[in-house]
Design a protein around this nucleic acid. Structure first.
Lengths: 222, 222
DNA sequence: TAGATTGTTAATCGATTAACAATC
DNA sequence: TAGATTGTTAATCGATTAACAATC
């Protein structure tokens, strides 16, 4: 069954949403769901869901639908949740600290191994149990530990340099929280950015549009 | 010239990136740029850039290209940066605090007015100069102040309820940082979510794929 | 069995790319 | 003027939706 002929980014971006929705359904005790019902709950068409899943093989049962448990597990597998991925955090400022303390790395299949900083006041301490080392020892640490991803929350001025060092030391991916577009020539390394600013500006655009449209409407009658 | 016949989300998502890139170019002292050069620097085609800008009108000059300054300003206007948008933060846990202290709201055209929490230890204090009020006074505050957007960093269990209260009190948008899909029936209110988890899982998928492909390659020769 | 719902192919729609006349 | 580069329309490509036979 397995197809997997170059899955589009659109599909990849929906997979985590499926996973999240299925987790919620599972918690609510739902055992089976049809593509139709799942689509309605997520604002997608049944057709699209079946087409998406078709990229990876047949997980459903004709006349019955999908078993929530097993579909969730299948998608988790596809996402690589059981690959034993590991991660380190670069930068323990406000945001780095917040992520270390709050984000559920393990629910997403990642083990958080360590954090790095240059501030002597935090180096040597632990944040939520995670040891903080000096940035100078990054390469040594990556040499001794298999690390899949480096999370960047360093100041923007240090972003590209730290990204380069991570790549040179062999990580497979960079999770970039700085407002800088990390460039990476190596095509075996993936950069995934979370740009708060882009998100807020898109929201700003959308609310501005709605307001304009309402202004127009107000003007129309009479 | 102005066209603006229903701009696609794909275009909307690229606008902030243009804005960011143009800001960087401006800082580096670049005065003019062609769609070709801009495209190369962003990994887009010249055609796409011209097509995107065509949605809003003609900002360039034939035979010359685009003036970095004025194009940046035009895109800023389109994004609503000069609309005097305002924002409040709900939840001053680690993440809320980190965003209040670090995020440059004003660079994105937003004025951060206040934060809300239920924890008596923070209510009444200020974070980076921003007053923290009790969540009970949310409606009173929104009644007195025109607030465009509510930023949600509350615990997941409180997310939907606080979202509903924001909408009922008249915000135009919700910037959702909880790992919960806020639902909102009102079509004049926009929900924009930043799901860290979705982002990491997409990254997880991509690095897992690359690793698989390399495994295959290793097997091939011989 | 009849009804429901999938897997899968075909049709449609929308977004990206190509092309080129207009013009700075 | 000649060269460059846009604005804009047309062609292509890819993603979504529709359709339906297969089958639980």
């Amino acid at each position: 069954m397995k197809r997997n002929t170059r899955v589009s980014t659109a599909v990849i971006r929906r997979l985590p949403r499926y996973y999240r929705q299925l987790s919620e359904l599972q918690e609510s005790g739902v055992v089976r769901i049809s593509s139709n019902a799942l689509g309605k709950s997520m604002g997608l068409t049944a057709s699209q869901i079946r087409q998406d899943l078709f990229c990876f093989g047949g997980f459903g049962q004709q006349g019955y639908g999908y078993k929530v448990d097993s579909l969730k597990e299948e998608i988790g597998d596809i996402l690589g949740i059981n690959q034993g991925h590991t991660i380190v955090v670069l930068g323990t400022g406000n945001l780095g600290r917040a992520i270390i303390e709050n984000f559920k790395f393990s629910s997403n299949g990642f083990q958080l191994l360590a954090a790095f900083d240059v501030n002597e006041r935090v180096v040597g301490t632990r944040i939520a149990g995670v040891p903080v080392y000096h940035a100078d020892s990054l390469e040594a640490f990556l040499g001794e530990n298999q690390v899949s991803v480096g999370l960047l929350t360093v100041p923007i001025a240090a972003a590209q340099e730290m990204g380069d060092r991570l790549v040179a030391a062999g990580v497979r991916g960079i999770w970039n929280f700085t407002n800088y577009e990390i460039s990476c020539v190596r095509d075996d390394v993936v950069v995934e950015s979370v740009h708060f600013s882009d998100s807020l500006l898109a929201l700003s655009y959308m609310i501005t549009q709605r307001e304009d449209r309402e202004e127009e409407k107000k003007g129309e009658p009479q």
